[in-house]
């Protein structure tokens, strides 16, 4: 690939999604964009790039961005954040929000739905403790295509086996041919909507918990700062944030603070001192 072609595509990706594509990832462009070229009746990636240069069609640009930003997702990916959510965050929220009986959870990179549905399964497991509560689980993603898959909730045998205990499969899925479909009950617990983390966060307020995992790694430092500060504004003053295993707030923003001993978990700074001192005395 010619350097000017790489610059063209990486420039489009950066403006549209914040994705930083380093030159050694050129293979990723080739493997993900060649199928798009073929589907359009073009022979090579070069032809596709010419087409972009000539017409800059919105639909094509957004298709390219989706193809490059879509990532694999598993149910209960990395286990730890879900264990922390179940054992620490949720019990604390049940106490703290006892008056309103409302909990708001946002999955900011929901991809094909595994993360919000994993959260829904955990909420379901709480049973009577959350009887009569209003639990909002909101999944957003840049890519509309992945969200369409999330809404249908149909997963392959491989997908339902990576990370998910068999008991959850038995409880919450039905077999449909070779695939497994998540129950209507769980689907009803999660709402999905396309959203770009670089845009404005209109309508996003008062979230108790935000999962924003494995998306910041693609952003440049100043973009990470901007996104995290906007996320912070969409949260309650005593909110909890989960980031991916390879991500951190350190050196990025002081709006969040790591929770000692809880990998990947962060509190909004307004309360983290009060909370950690109550943990020490409690």
């Amino acid at each position: 690939m010619r350097p000017e072609d790489f610059d063209l595509i990486s420039g489009i990706l950066k403006t549209r999604s914040g994705l930083i594509l380093s030159p050694e990832k050129v293979y990723l462009l080739e493997s993900r964009l060649t199928p798009i070229a073929r589907a359009k009746g073009l022979e090579t990636l070069d032809d596709l790039i010419n087409e972009i240069r000539l017409h800059r069609k919105e639909a094509l640009l957004s298709e390219i961005t989706e193809a490059m930003t879509t990532n694999e997702s598993f149910f209960f990916r990395d286990n730890t954040p879900f264990d922390l959510f179940k054992d620490k965050v949720l019990p604390e929220l049940i106490k703290r929000n006892a008056q309103t009986k409302k909990i708001k959870i946002w999955c900011a990179a929901a991809s094909t739905g595994q993360e919000p549905y994993s959260i829904a399964m955990i909420v379901k497991e709480m049973g009577a403790k959350l009887e009569g509560w209003d639990i909002e689980i909101f999944g957003t993603d840049l890519s509309n295509k992945v969200l369409e898959k999330a809404k249908v909730g149909l997963y392959s045998q491989f997908e339902v086996q990576r990370g998910m205990p068999i008991k959850y499969l038995m409880k919450h899925f039905a077999q449909v041919g070779e695939m497994w479909q998540i129950s209507e009950e769980l689907k009803g617990m999660v709402k999905f909507k396309p959203m770009n983390l670089l845009d404005n966060y209109m309508g996003f307020h008062n979230y108790d918990v935000v999962f924003c995992r494995n998306v910041l790694i693609y952003f440049e430092p100043d973009m990470k700062t901007k996104v995290l500060e906007k996320v912070r504004k969409a949260m309650k003053p005593d909110g909890t944030l989960f980031l991916g295993a390879a991500e951190t707030v350190l050196g990025i923003t002081d709006k969040f603070k790591p929770v000692t001993g809880s990998r990947g978990m962060y509190h909004t700074t307004d309360v983290s001192d009060a909370l950690s001192s109550s943990l020490r005395t409690g």
Binding site: N79, Q157, F158, Q161, R162, G163, M164, P165, I166
Partner: peptide
Amino acid sequence: DEYIMKPFDREIIESKFSQ
């Protein structure tokens, strides 16, 4: 205790065993 549907790969064995 757990159930793996073939075909399996290393990732599935690893995740089921860790569960």
